[in-house]
Amino acid sequence: MCTSELVSQFQEEILNAQLEKSRLQIVGGDTKAFLKPNVPASLTRLEIGGYQGIVDYQPSELVLTARAGTSLTIINETLAEQGQMLAFEPPAFGRSATLGGIVASGLSGPRRPFAGAVRDFVLGCKIINGQGEVLTFGGQVMKNVAGYDVSRLMAGSEGTLGVILEVSLKVLPAPKKELTLNIAMPIESALVQMVALRRHYLSISAVAYENGFLRVRYSGSKTGILSVLDTSVITDVDVESSQNYWHALKEQQVDFFHTKGDLWRISVPPATPVLSVPGHWFYDWAGGLRWLKTAAPVAAVFGAATAHGGTARLFRSSQQAPWPRQEVALPLARLNKRVKAAFDPSELFV
């Protein structure tokens, strides 16, 4: 089926759902359904995986435009051939991950604090809203302030505002070579050192902490980095050249994620001290993103995050749905609801 026929088909499915008062679950490569545990599996699926292909990619423009069903692997390979990359390092969570899912889930990898999140790289998009209308926002240029910036709003909207058809992303040159410093130190010192690293202009692209080791990914010289750190807290330093660690981290394949128990994703201001919830902790994003394996009660996790101006979300769990969600302040919750209704008045997309 040609791409325009596919769009008509999606529109038809949306209008049918409207008539039948049914609800739709948008599916791309079906790698991230676990992110929406409270959505019943029995819903009608709107499959967009077939809507694929890179529409435009000119390396000198630093912009790639592709259809939502385009495989992330193909995009990564295409960019790598030109020495470029998706700087937000999106996790795939499976071989069949698509561009649409990457944008809709709004998840970014270890480079995020230094390069930006998915939303920072979205320049434009084409969507179908809940009325079945094809709409175009933003464009393929770096600066564009005509109309509300709906393209970035789509990042992280989890398919609840409309069907993402096509996205234009800003891409960046990939660093020629990156190395990782493994520095042994206790977590209390590591949180302080992470602040020091972020406060200095260094060629750092990731900072994580796990199991007694602060890991710092960098390009260029390590001298500048070591001179920023407090040497009295360092017990050991080594340099590793492999990038496998960071890939495994973003795909949640490092050992930490294989241990048993509920996995929580906690987003807090990066300098937040150690949170007093018992369990195993993993620190990414220079302290701003904390993964927690715990058996602690839900309220304790939400409470700890809220107390520091952050948010917590149960990410993986064997619990029965519905999973608990952190409460959102009422005025914001109302506004979110009205924005949802502006795109999808019949509440088709869940």
Partner: peptide
């Protein structure tokens, strides 16, 4: 923090 739950209303 680096992100929060819900729609990215900062964007619009």
């Amino acid at each position: 923090g680096f992100d929060s739950e819900g729609y990215d209303l900062l964007a619009i």
